[in-house]
């Protein structure tokens, strides 16, 4: 039995190794708290470093973890930029005093006004729509019109969507409150819940698969998941995405619900100047293409060309609201969904 010294030796070895893996923060650097982690992002950060000499340290985690961390750390945080894939969360961060307002002509020029917070607390970077995905053999495009139409009797037991604990569902419902008010939203949620094929389950890809499988005929889900499934490692997922069709609802009425990946400068950022430069860089033409196509999203910069796949889905009209409202109504949306039994 010589295991104990052996274990001790191993422990020491790993301690030394791990010490080597801990990076040293450089003088001119910013720290990015981000929900994204695509390999192509690192390439962008490298370009940014070449252009400005500012190194980007990345902390990648879930939105809630990032926000809780930021809140707990308070003024001692290392974060300069907070980037999250849901506008509702950014609003919550702003409300909790985790962000600061910054002014930048470049940012205002790059980003349309409804895709950024009016006072400059956060700026949208990429855009995705929550659309209807249907099986062409069971649903004809002509049958589809609006989100609200899905609450009609002929859709009984034919609709699937994600759980109410999911951020996308929350922002979706919040947008309904922003556009139609609370009473109509409640009616909509009631009707939607009544027409669901089964209790919500699974992620966005699962919604598409449930339609493919015939459990339902229409799914409410995000555009980019169709893109990601088309490029999946699993050949059978690619199959699903090739069979199903997309539909942008509410084109004749209030527009399709969109959500942003957006970023803001943290309240206690040490390198505000670097942080703003980084946001300007991400919203500029050079970075926008790569940044958006990494996740098959739409760039916010109007002059940037779409990823060919995204372009193939056609153009659409988004809801005409300032997206900051998604955050304003987020909590209310959760309460309505819980009360109306959206699981």
């Amino acid at each position: 039995m010589k295991k104990i010294p052996f274990i001790a030796l191993l422990s020491v070895l790993f301690l030394i190794l791990s010490a080597c893996t801990l990076g040293v923060n450089e003088e001119n650097s910013i720290t990015l708290f981000t929900q994204r982690h695509y390999d192509t992002d690192q390439a962008l950060y490298d370009i940014f470093y070449e252009q400005t000499g500012i190194r980007v340290n990345v902390v990648s985690a879930g939105a809630d973890e990032l926000m809780n961390r930021l809140e707990t750390e308070g003024e001692d945080t290392v974060a300069d930029v907070l980037l999250m894939a849901d506008v509702g969360r950014l609003h919550m961060a702003q409300e909790r005093g985790l962000l600061q307002a910054v002014q930048s002509e470049a940012l205002e020029a790059h980003i349309p006004a409804n895709f950024r917070q009016p006072d400059g607390y956060w700026f949208g970077l990429t855009l995705r729509a929550r659309i209807l995905v249907y099986h062409p053999e069971r649903v004809s495009e002509a049958e589809l019109s609006t989100y609200q139409a899905l609450t009609e009797p002929q859709w009984q037991g034919r609709v699937v969507t994600r759980t109410s604990t999911n951020l996308y569902s929350q922002s979706f419902t919040a947008s309904m409150i922003a556009v139609y008010g609370e009473a109509q939203t409640r009616t909509f949620v009631q009707g939607l819940v009544a027409n669901l094929a089964h209790a919500p389950r699974g992620n966005d890809r699962d919604q598409a698969k449930q339609v493919m499988n015939g459990e339902a005929d229409v799914a409410i889900m995000n555009t980019y998941y169709m893109g990601r499934m088309l490029n999946s490692a699993d050949p059978f997922e690619r199959d699903v995405a090739q069979t199903l069709r997309l539909f942008f609802p509410n084109q004749e009425t209030t527009g399709t619900h969109v959500n942003l990946s957006a970023a803001g400068v943290t309240r206690h950022a040490r390198n505000v100047e670097g942080a703003v430069k980084f946001l300007e860089f991400l919203s500029d033409t050079q970075a926008q293409g790569l940044f958006a196509s990494a996740n098959f999203e739409y760039p916010v910069h109007p002059d940037v060309e779409l990823d060919p796949l995204v372009a193939s889905w056609g153009t659409f009209r988004p809801q005409d609201i300032n997206l900051a409202l998604l955050g304003v109504h987020a909590r209310h949306a959760v309460i309505i969904m819980d009360e109306e039994g959206w699981e």
Binding site: T31, N57, V58, G62, E65, R69, V78, R205
Partner: peptide, 22 residues
């Protein structure tokens, strides 16, 4: 998940993150 330091990923948390990203 909740208590790890920034930029500190373990095998289990990596699995969780991948799964969350579908």
């Amino acid at each position: 998940l909740v208590l790890r330091p920034t930029n500190y990923e373990t095998l289990a948390s990596l699995v969780y993150v991948y799964a969350r990203e579908e």
